[in-house]
Amino acid sequence: MVSTIFVGLVDLVSGVRLWPVWTALAREDIDDQHRRTTLGPVWLTINYLMFAGTFIFVIHPSNTEQGSIYAPYAAIGLMIWFYLMDNINQAVTLFAREESYIKGTRLPLSVYIMRLGMQALIRAVYTLTGCLAIVLISGFFPTFGWLWSVLAILVILATIPAAIILLAMLGTFFPDSQFIISNLMRVGMFLTPIFWIYTPGEGGARGMLYYWNPFTYYINLVREPILSGAPHISDAMTCIAISAFAWILALYLLGRLRHEVVFAL
């Protein structure tokens, strides 16, 4: 198993080294999507602001304690969710979309993984701008505690390639998964504490959705330092454990299946 993980790691490193290729392709992908528009990718910020603004306006709780933090709470949750959803939904069909490259070039599979990660990151920068605007307008201004959120974002960024590998492999060998995943992500937005606030000690379905949902921990990790000044250690430990497990499994699958993908497309 260790040697297989090492093979996966070699593929990953060789792909990362080709950063001029995947950054150029990702930039071109984003430009292509907005080339004919006047505002270009700024539409991503506008879309986010409209979506987040509508939800905050409609769902804003009357409870003063929750109401005072609700706008940044929902804005940050939604920004992270959009970034994760973008990666996850596209990862399932990644290798099928890249078939002509995979069957026509010798680029390592990790080039396509990084290309998708980079695309989603560029889009996320535009939503981040909108999110920051909502947070600042809500009266939350930068403190040193926000550095924890920056660190949390780095943890998410570092985990995304592993998630893309896992889902791309799943989608390649089980094509139906693209529909299962997109449906799960659609309902997942409502099952994850993005718009609703969990009250500690609350049991029932909400408690289960809160504790058994891995997205909860990543979103909390970014959100808590901005709202309360520091992250919860338990969130950080859970995220690191999930990320480490995801990476081990992803590298194993990449090492084990990287030569099989070309035959499965």
Binding site: F173, F174, P175, D176, E260, F263, A264
Partner: peptide, 9 residues
């Protein structure tokens, strides 16, 4: 060349 029949519904 494996003619893989993917698991599909």
């Amino acid at each position: 060349y494996p003619l893989r029949t993917k698991f599909s519904l």
